[in-house]
């Protein structure tokens, strides 16, 4: 069983390749440069180096968001098209769940998040139970302020995993005090190899059905629905 994993949902570009329970290759960069340009050359290089041809793949796994709209679409489009054209299934995995995997030895709550501007974050709440990662509070977009009061009531340590942690560190510590735990810096970014673990714990899906997880409507749609609501109340 050979699986190719792709994550382009943030500035981190991650690619991993597994054969059974062996990680054949894992590649990550973390800098602001075009995923659209760099993803396929990187996949090509990795697969060539370990001597795996595309035709040998059994499945493709991808981080499907939430995250950068464009980044997520590049990963999802690449993954679903490869999978569809090869006639193999695809695993669409939450980018937050992927990030949460980095808290695998943490005994408390795990809060992956990324900044969503205007005081909002994409986040969810996870926890390892019997060494399986469980989603305890669904992925969402929420005001950080509101989210922190939810976490406060959990009354247990919360591990924060995020590339945007510095931006919100003071705000989080201000509310949660010593309840807040921040991971070491390498764990603050997602590792594509973890997608392969998660793929092994979930059902695969047909390539056509894979779509990004945006967790919110596009601006134009929000406005359109708001206008429609307004008219309905007149």
């Amino acid at each position: 069983m050979k699986i190719l994993a792709i994550d382009t949902s943030t500035h981190v570009m991650g690619i991993a390749l597994s054969q059974g329970d062996k990680l054949l290759a894992e590649y990550t960069t973390n800098f602001k440069k075009n995923h659209s340009l760099r993803l396929m050359p990187a996949i090509h290089q990795i697969m060539e180096e370990v001597g795996v041809s595309p035709a040998e793949l059994d499945a493709v796994a991808v981080a499907k968001g939430p995250g950068s709209y464009t980044g997520v679409r590049i990963g999802v489009t690449t993954a679903k098209t490869m999978a569809w054209s090869l006639g193999i299934p695809v695993y669409g995995i939450s980018s937050l769940q992927l990030q949460a995997r980095n808290g695998k030895h943490f005994p408390g709550w795990i809060c992956p998040f990324s900044d969503a501007r205007r005081g909002q974050i994409y986040t969810g709440l996870y926890r390892f139970r019997d060494s399986l990662l469980r989603e305890e509070e669904k992925d969402r977009i929420v005001l950080l302020e509101d989210w922190l009061s939810v976490l406060k009531e959990k009354n247990e340590p919360v591990l924060f995993l995020s590339q945007d942690w510095k931006k919100h560190e003071l705000g989080i510590k201000g509310v949660l005090k010593e309840q807040a735990v921040f991971a070491d810096f390498p764990d603050m970014q997602p590792r594509p190899g973890e997608l392969l673990v998660l793929a092994g714990q979930m059902p695969a899906q047909e390539a056509h059905t894979l779509a990004p997880e945006y967790t919110q409507m596009a601006e134009a749609e929000k406005k359109w629905y708001a206008a429609k609501e307004g008219r309905a109340h007149e």
């Binding site: 659209s36 993803l39 396929m40 996949i43 090509h44 595309p54 035709a55 709209y69 464009t70 679409r73 590049i74 489009t77 690449t78 993954a79 098209t81 490869m82 054209s85 090869l86």
Partner: peptide, 17 residues
């Protein structure tokens, strides 16, 4: 954003085969 979808899909299918 629209170009990116076509280009990446074409690259993925071309690479796969």
């Amino acid at each position: 954003g629209a170009l990116l979808i076509g280009v990446n899909a074409a690259k993925a299918a071309a690479f796969a085969h």
